[in-house]
Simulated assay, not measured.
Amino acid sequence: MNVKEFLHTELLHVGEYQIMVFHVLALAGIFLGTKLILFVIYRVFLKQIERKNFDKGRSLAFYQIIKYVLIVVAIALGLETMGIKLTLLLAGSAALLVGLGLGIQQFFNDLVSGLVLLVEGTVTVGDIVELDGLVGKITEINMRTSNVATRDGIMIIVPNSKLVSDNVINWSHNREATRFKVNVGVAYGTDLETAERLILDAALNTEHVSKTPAPFSRFIDFGNSSLDLEVYFWTKNMWHIEYVKSEIRKRIYKSFNQNKITIPFPQRDIHIISGDK
């Protein structure tokens, strides 16, 4: 048996379709070729990201689009190689697709939302988002769902439609420092200028707090037991923001103790009236 006869050896016969050794080898070649092309493209993107020529999130989103396009092209080539005409396949399954579409509308909604996310780039891999009061980092965006890692190390699978249609706060969207605040109260009679200077120094001397823009403070209200102050600051370390706030509070508490400034606690006067028996 020569090579030509071997390639045309029939392996399976289904109706009018014949599966030969040639078809199997062609499918394997298409599969391996697609994997190799995707591997090369991924390595190129990684090098560009390491050189900081491209934004990581948008680069990975662009790679995902290329990946899905190549997969669709590979499937189409595989079907054509098997002798299955795509036009006939689509025409024959039109009614079935309509029925499936009515039953799995949410599934297709998530698929379309995935394409919107990849094309628009409003939410990309590495972004820190707040969704339904939950803060997490986008670790992966797939066609139907996205993976969101919380600060507790829990991985949440979120349908892409929620990231598109719901109100999502993207802390990293502007790629710059984000503003946060820390509240503190001081006792009535405290010199406010001294208190504001101390909380500003506490913020400025905390790691990960940006010097530009510089932190600033505000006297916000006369509280029931305290004069309420706020210190605003900017940081690029959004993922560990609670740790940054904790360090600022520690420095404020230490500075207030050193300067004899009291942080009051709620106090209540209780009047006891005793009646005659």
Score class of each variant (00 low, 15 high):
1 M>T: 10
4 K>E: 13
10 E>Y: 00
11 L>E: 12
11 L>R: 04
19 I>H: 03
26 A>K: 07
27 L>Q: 02
30 I>E: 00
35 K>H: 09
38 L>V: 01
39 F>D: 02
48 Q>H: 05
55 D>Y: 15
67 K>A: 08
69 V>M: 10
74 A>D: 02
79 L>G: 02
81 T>E: 11
88 L>H: 14
91 A>P: 02
92 G>P: 03
93 S>G: 10
94 A>V: 15
97 L>I: 11
99 G>R: 06
100 L>M: 07
101 G>D: 06
104 I>D: 15
105 Q>I: 09
106 Q>P: 10
108 F>N: 09
110 D>G: 03
110 D>C: 05
111 L>K: 01
112 V>Y: 15
118 L>Q: 13
118 L>T: 11
122 T>Q: 04
122 T>M: 04
124 T>C: 09
137 K>W: 05
137 K>Q: 10
139 T>H: 11
140 E>W: 13
142 N>G: 14
147 N>L: 13
148 V>H: 11
152 D>Q: 14
160 N>W: 00
163 L>W: 13
165 S>M: 09
166 D>V: 02
170 N>K: 05
170 N>I: 00
172 S>P: 05
175 R>Y: 05
176 E>M: 08
178 T>H: 11
180 F>I: 00
182 V>P: 04
183 N>E: 08
186 V>D: 02
186 V>N: 02
194 T>Y: 00
194 T>D: 03
195 A>T: 06
199 I>A: 01
200 L>I: 11
200 L>Y: 03
206 T>K: 01
212 T>K: 12
220 I>Y: 01
221 D>H: 13
222 F>W: 07
224 N>Y: 14
233 F>I: 05
234 W>A: 02
235 T>F: 08
239 W>M: 00
240 H>N: 15
242 E>F: 03
243 Y>F: 14
246 S>I: 06
248 I>T: 09
249 R>M: 09
250 K>A: 00
258 Q>K: 14
263 I>D: 03
267 Q>G: 11
276 D>R: 12
